[in-house]
Design a protein around this nucleic acid. Sequence first.
DNA 1: CGGTATCCTAACCGATACTG
DNA 2: CAGTATCGGTTAGGATACCG
Lengths: 131, 131
Amino acid sequence: MPWPKSTKTTRIRKGNLFASNCPTRNVLDDVTSRWGSLVLVLLLESSYRFSELAYLIGGVSEKMLAQTLRALEEDGFVLRTVHATKPPKVEYSLTAFGRELAERMQALTSYIEGNVARVMANRASAAKKIA
Amino acid sequence: MPWPKSTKTTRIRKGNLFASNCPTRNVLDDVTSRWGSLVLVLLLESSYRFSELAYLIGGVSEKMLAQTLRALEEDGFVLRTVHATKPPKVEYSLTAFGRELAERMQALTSYIEGNVARVMANRASAAKKIA
DNA sequence: CGGTATCCTAACCGATACTG
DNA sequence: CAGTATCGGTTAGGATACCG
């Protein structure tokens, strides 16, 4: 299957991010998952223990946090360090790779955070048009 | 409910991104949704019609595309322009606001795209450890 | 062309209970 | 403390059919 009729689409398309089988999209799903993005940004400020993360990220369940951390660890973004103390202490931190990623994620989240009032205003006026 | 015992957490926490009721998280969900991020990055290169987007973004259904576009429009990131031709032509583009956002999203996606091989290798070696 | 409406299932995900 | 296991509800989201 060749590319579309529209001449527009021949311009930039280098990668295949938009192809449904692209592995990049897979990774992106980990990174932009509900809790994944929050974990990345949070770990940018410090390493944290499991229970600290669970506490700091409001609304996350242990199950989802574990799942999220495991995915990010397998991708190579997060480092899991077990201290063989008693009781055990497990520390999560960013790898150098993960830090590069998280910085870009933070650029996104902090932009949103800084402009959230504007978005809420937009939503309100959009809702008004329907009513 | 005050903030945690851990002294670490008192350092940076300015916003409330990590609070479960934070509106920023809501916006983030729109932006990092499965199709939202792809739409934003795609519109960065050009404006597109509905059917073009549906074609370019592999695997998206009309329903989800419409839903995604509507959310991004209500947030003020995407502009929907109806040309009253026959047959009708609807063009989607980024607002100036949306462009700022999309640039940050693109920084993220292109970083992943450029390092996806590394992630796949990490995943493979993580899988090996289990077996 | 550019959607919406309806139906339906697959998965996500939270709650609870349990383990090393 | 740091998880895993299991269950069950909710919902995201795809397929199809239809409308302006």
